[in-house]
Design a protein around this nucleic acid. Structure first.
Lengths: 207, 207
DNA sequence: GTCTATAGGGCGATAGAC
DNA sequence: GTCTATCGCCCTATAGAC
């Protein structure tokens, strides 16, 4: 993944102390965002909630946007570590699982939505890079999964894997948004429909 | 739909002049947003671009958020008027058509994304009301379309229309954001895949 | 009724003090 | 290396001019 490492390694000293402190701030920030989402997230409010000063925050993070991006990245990384998805899961299944997990931390979904919205505007390079990278990474991984499932007959073979990958991601993102706004929206139900129609008709005679 | 009419009808006078001016501002604002999207959209910048004063804007719109919501609502209304969709179009077809139209005005899609992101946060009542109403209205309309198409055999009958409606909306929204970030994403292609898998297998023996 | 001028409180970013 | 002080901009609210 290579990350944004060029800037992260600040050469000369600042080894332990600085990086540790930075990580502490990041960890605490994840909790804060998970609770309250993207609202009340001025640098001053975040600093207050974390227990550091406004200036300290800007010392470790060049901009507010960079902080938001890094918080989300760190939370994503942490989530991947705590629950790696088993080999055999279906592509839609992976997204369903991810969506289910996200339901427990609406603030992070909201943060994600904020970042994507920012990425669409010009003049937000950090957010845009984050979103672009994330989509292409997930799209590529999902497309590979789907191709494998097509070979094993669990996904219709007459569909372009790339197109399906984009579709599954879009459905997952869009449904999470709808669900956050209206809890009567059946997120897993709709994802289930998608999974069903993507599987070969022979495999499920009528079911 | 009843709209937000309680406040809109300001009783006593203010008939022509004010409402006309307000509409002029809205019309001009649509153009501005279509061009530049949600960026550079401080009330002062918008006022400048439109050719009115900052104060004039706040006279007609109670808050910045309300202005954004009304601009998007007005643009949506205008789009519906200029290109009403013919009776027979498929549900996915309607969304495809809408997506194709949106491609010519990326700024409005971006504005939409901003509004939805804001709606997910607390403390943005106007945006939330807009998003909630919009989703439930479109969902209901689409579900009705889908049920009709199920009766005429153009959509698989073994799928819950509500679930499909949410899914189609999500796919459309999600794919548009992916496309805005990366033009190599094949929006219409992915929507085509969705349409294909939603149609009954018998109708399309293999094709 | 329509709008201009102005003030208040908060923001992100930055320069310079410990 | 850490953080306080400050700058310019923002939205909102209000007072009063056309």
């Amino acid at each position: 993944m290579s990350e944004t490492a060029p800037e992260a390694s600040k050469r000369r000293g600042s080894y332990a102390k600085g990086l540790v402190r930075r990580q502490q701030i990041l960890d605490r920030a994840i909790e804060v965002f998970a609770e309250r989402g993207a609202e009340r997230t001025s640098l001053r409010s975040i600093a207050d909630a974390i227990g550091v000063s406004h200036g300290a925050l800007t010392h470790y993070f060049t901009s507010r946007e960079q902080l938001l991006v890094e918080v989300y990245r760190a939370s994503e990384r942490r989530a991947d570590e705590t629950s790696p998805h088993p080999e055999g899961t279906s592509a839609v299944g992976v997204m369903t699982e991810s969506a289910r997990r996200n339901r427990t931390v609406p603030g992070l979904v909201q943060l994600y939505s904020t970042l994507v919205a920012a990425a669409l505007e010009e003049g937000h390079p950090d957010a845009r890079e984050f979103a672009t990278q994330r989509f292409s990474r997930i799209r590529a991984g999902l497309a590979a999964d789907i191709r494998a499932q097509q070979r094993s007959g669990r996904v219709r073979h007459d569909l372009d894997a790339e197109l399906v990958a984009s579709l599954v991601i879009a459905a997952s993102d869009g449904l999470q948004t709808q669900w956050l706004l209206d809890e009567t929206v059946d997120l897993e139900g709709s994802l289930g429909v998608l999974e069903r129609v993507l599987t070969p008709p022979d495999t499920t005679p009528l079911r």
